[in-house]
Design a protein around this nucleic acid. Structure first.
Length: 875
RNA sequence: GCGGGUGUGGCGGAACGGUAGACGCGACGGACUCAAAAUCCGUUUCCGGCAACGGAGUGUCGGUUCGAGCCCGACCACCCGCACCA
């Protein structure tokens, strides 16, 4: 024995505690109750509910198996579990499943860095996180668990991909894509945040590649219109989606080229202002536009300009600073209405190839950006819309364009029309001449799902010289990922694999090449909620099960998925619905977006970040480093992050305080849609309440406040019964409204009421039994413990008990408190029996000394009486 | 620029148009302890007052109302989303 002291130093005399203070042993109790629930299979749901109870599908966004759960997970799954347990108690058939969003880049990075296989890394993480989630005591149906990287899951996804292909909802085409140079893969538009890759943070480049696209744009009108039906979604998520889908009405206009260039005979633009066509000054195309390419082929200066545009940053800062730059190609286009007039074609760095047609007509008099451009290059600025009240002879455009409505002039057949009428007339004229038509343009782009990665769902397609792209026959699914892969070289390991991609063409048998792109992982999470309904079935989705359970009644997750995941899942469900695989067009009837869990962060003068346990926090909130006493800069409400070292490990919290304490604090602190601050003192406070409730039950027969002159526990039961039933009503209302912090407050009050009550033992026992059922959704283990104290030897579980019903007879009070105001100012409060007639209430109010003083002898002009609430005298 | 949201004690936050600050955290005072921990009791929006009580008070200014944190109008601050979108 060399480690540790071999003897203990002499200690001062210790006196044994006369009466050891008993405390709730959550560390023993929590696993015991988790085992009891599991044994009773209390949370298992059938694939197809028998219809005797209304169904309720509660789902939290499934986690990425990064290795450990974090506080955001604890909050997310606690919120979902409260809903699940509450709805179960209210008599619903509840489905509450859990799985793993398990494909993705971190597994490959781990493989590169440490040589572990992505599958091994992922499944080890899942095992660790499953154990952590189980320690939280969540009422999950674990029998439905799957990971998206299971061949049983991604094989079904491949079958769905083939269905999409057959339905014409998948296309392969060459296009300009967002390329993330760090992750070495393509990104969808939604995954480019502020010009940078959503995961890597690297500035995104433009590349032209052949890609697989899902036709989300076919559903753009439906996806937009149906937002109005999602009345249980947060307003801001709906607006964000509406903005993202981005509908705008206008026209497509074709401008014939004065002389065809490389076979190109016209340039088509999209405009929302066809009324201003007579104010045209130039035509501008994107650097990626065919006309720009034609110019570049002819003129090295044009080629240089195109190259410059392509390297231009797309970040907000870069755009802000970037000048409006252009290059005159020398090409000219004819005007659709002005006979003989032609306009120059410019390449401009502000024209986006991805929006509209990649070309626009410039009308500087009525558009700020066009005006800046025209002023810079000395192009004409002809006004065509006269603002209300302006004189056509004197109206001129200075530094700001007129972008509002007005009366058309200088515009031939549009003269005298207002903006709205002119738009219609211009579109009619374009359509009559075959030079354009009214269209609705969408900002939403098709969803490019090809990713040049290993750890994803292989796209089940084979490329054959003779037959083109051939779908893998369904009876050959799943297309399994090869296990022997080499991560030592950059790029897509599937591409490097010596044999995997070489296959025979399923159609002609000739040697062919397997598609080596894998699916964007957002595909995996676009239908998992449907798979949960029948997770082991042969078909990807089982209509009887999916139609019985979908839509998800309550979906809960972070606001960061407001666009990406939620839009993709809506699209998938709509597509599946048109293919007859599910009935519902919308996946999530109710959506709740939770706030982030934050924590104070501590920074030393030498820029070191300190973890919370390295810090001494004073009462005034200031902090110093433990040991050294170096003063620290404290920043409240910082997002938890490893770099700032302000993360709190849920595992440590649960082993120190128990799962119930963590759950209770996270619910109690603030409304769940707001960001919350994790604080050590707050957790400790929550734990005090856990212990207090336990003590309340454990010492029930010893307690009971004595009334003056009476004995403990010999008082009237009715006040406590009333408090009990008022609490039932209040907590029920709070839980229904996601006001969990209010529910917590009401339960605190209830605990105060029980402790202060001198009701007989039986009444207090009944109150604690109601308490057990009311706290159960939030602190399920403690609830079971309370019941077992009240009813020793019982095998009943609170988790299987119905929600208590408030008795209306006990909600009614015998006395009411009336506030008495004079001129709207509170002067007295009256306590009167319920049912006191109005004249008696008014008389009592007027008789109050303070009221008399405030009235000061003036005549009362008006007496307002709101029964049971208030009296207001107007003098 | 466009769209959405939020402003209440030292802090998190309560409040069908009807007693603003429930409940908790923190702080302060006290009890129990040799001492501590744990627990219990009390105080805690600000100003004046020993008190009863009075005055002020929910970002600012105005309006509606017997009565406004809540409804309406204008503004200010902060947060979030989108954006050379034609």
């Amino acid at each position: 024995m060399t480690d540790g002291p071999t003897d203990t130093p002499a200690r001062p005399m210790e006196r044994p505690l006369e009466r050891p203070v008993e405390r709730y042993d959550f560390a023993a109790a929590e696993p015991r109750w988790q085992a009891a629930w599991e044994q009773g299979a209390l949370f298992a749901a059938p694939d197809v509910p028998d219809g005797t109870k209304p169904k309720y599908y509660v789902l939290e966004m499934f986690p990425y198996p990064s290795g450990k759960i974090h506080m955001g997970h604890v909050r997310n799954y606690t919120l979902g579990d409260v809903v699940a347990r509450y709805k179960r108690a209210r008599g619903h058939a509840v489905m509450h499943p859990m799985g793993w969003d398990a494909f993705g880049l971190p597994a490959e990075n781990a493989a590169r860095e440490r040589g572990t296989h992505p599958a091994a890394w992922t499944y080890a993480n899942i095992a660790a996180m499953r154990a952590e989630l189980k320690s939280m005591g969540l009422s999950l149906d674990w029998s439905r668990e799957f990971a998206t990287c299971d061949p049983e899951y991604y094989g079904k996804q491949q079958a769905l991909f083939l269905d999409f292909l057959q339905a014409g909802l998948v296309e392969r085409r060459k296009s300009w894509v967002n390329w993330d140079p760090v992750d070495g893969t393509v990104l969808a538009n939604e995954q480019v945040i502020d010009g940078k890759g959503w995961r890597s943070g690297a500035p995104v480049e433009k590349r032209e590649l052949s890609q697989w696209f899902l036709a989300i744009t076919k559903f753009a009108p439906d996806l937009l219109a149906a937002l109005d039906t999602l009345d249980r979604w947060p307003e801001r998520v709906r607006t964000m989606q509406a903005n993202w889908i981005g509908r705008s009405e206008g026209a497509r206009v074709r401008f014939p080229l004065a002389a065809p260039v490389d076979g190109v005979t016209e340039a088509e633009v999209f405009t929302t202002r066809p009324d201003t066509l007579f104010g045209m000054s130039f035509l501008a195309v994107a650097a990626e536009h065919p006309l720009a390419a034609a110019a570049a082929a002819r003129d090295p200066a044009a080629a240089a300009f195109v190259a410059e545009c392509r390297s231009q940053g797309t970040s907000e800062a870069a755009i802000e600073q970037a000048e409006k730059k252009g290059f005159d190609t020398g090409f000219r286009v004819a005007h659709p209405f002005l006979e003989g007039a032609t306009f120059p074609v410019w390449i401009a760095n502000f024209v986006l190839m991805e929006y509209g047609t990649g070309a626009l007509f410039g009308c500087p008099a009525h558009d700020q950006r066009d005006l800046d451009f025209a002023r810079k290059y000395g192009l004409p600025v002809p006004p065509v819309v006269l603002p209300p009240g302006e004189d056509p002879a004197s109206f001129a455009i200075g530094r700001t364009p007129w972008t509002g409505d007005g009366t058309l002039y200088n515009s031939a057949f549009l003269d005298g029309l207002d903006t709205a009428a002119a738009k219609r007339a211009a579109i009619d004229a374009l359509e009559a001449r075959g030079l354009g038509q009214g269209v609705v343009n969408w900002r939403l782009r098709d969803w490019g799902v090809s990713r040049q990665r290993y750890w994803g769902c292989p796209i089940p397609v084979i490329h054959c010289e003779a037959c083109g792209t051939v779908p893998v026959p369904k009876d050959q699914l799943p297309v399994l990922l090869p296990e022997d892969v080499d991560f030592s070289v950059p790029g897509n390991p599937l591409d490097h694999h010596p044999s995997w991609k070489h296959v025979a063409c399923p159609s002609c048998g000739a040697p062919a090449r397997r598609e080596t792109d894998t699916c964007d992982t957002f595909v995996d999470s676009s239908w998992y909620f449907a798979r949960f309904c029948a997770p082991r079935a042969e078909a990807p989705i089982t209509p009887e099960a999916a139609d019985a359970w979908l839509p998800v009644d309550q979906y809960i997750g972070g606001i960061e998925h407001a666009i990406l995941h939620l839009l993709y899942a809506r699209f998938f469900t709509r597509a599946l619905s048109t293919m007859g695989q599910v009935r519902t067009p919308e996946p999530f009837a109710g959506l709740f977006t939770q706030g982030m869990v934050q924590h104070a962060s501590y920074k030393a003068p030498d820029n070191r970040w300190l973890a919370p346990d390295e810090v001494e926090v004073a009462a005034d909130g200031s902090a110093v480093e433990k040991g050294t006493g170096i003063p620290l800069t404290v920043s409240r409400n910082d997002k938890m992050s490893k770099s700032k070292r302000n993360t709190v490990d849920p595992g440590a919290i649960i082993s120190r305080y128990g799962a119930d304490t963590a759950r209770w604090f996270i619910l109690a602190d603030n409304p769940p849609d707001r960001d919350m601050e994790w604080s050590e003192s707050g957790v400790a406070g929550a734990h005090r309440f856990v212990q207090r409730l336990w003590r309340l039950a454990a010492t029930l027969d010893q307690k009971g406040a004595a009334t003056p002159g009476g004995r403990a526990g010999d008082g009237d039961a009715r006040p406590l019964m009333q408090a009990t039933h008022r609490t039932i009503a209040a907590v029920t209302a709070a839980l229904e409204g996601f006001a969990f912090n209010v529910a917590v407050a009401r339960l605190h009050e209830f605990a105060n009421a029980i402790e202060g009550s001198n009701a007989p033992l039986e009444a207090r026992r009944e109150a604690v039994s109601v308490m057990a059922r009311l706290v159960a959704p939030m602190m399920p283990h403690l609830a079971e413990e309370l019941l077992s104290i009240l009813r020793p030897g019982t095998t009943d579980l609170v988790a299987g008990m119905p929600w208590p019903e408030a008795d209306p007879a006990l909600l009614a009070a015998e006395t009411m408190t009336i506030a008495v105001q004079v001129l709207g100012k509170l002067r007295a409060t009256l306590s009167l029996p319920v049912g006191t007639p109005e004249d008696a209430v008014l008389a009592a109010a007027e008789a109050e000394e303070n009221v008399q003083r405030a009235i000061a002898g003036k005549p009362i002009r008006k007496r307002i009486h709101v029964p049971g609430r208030i009296v207001n005298f107007v003098v």
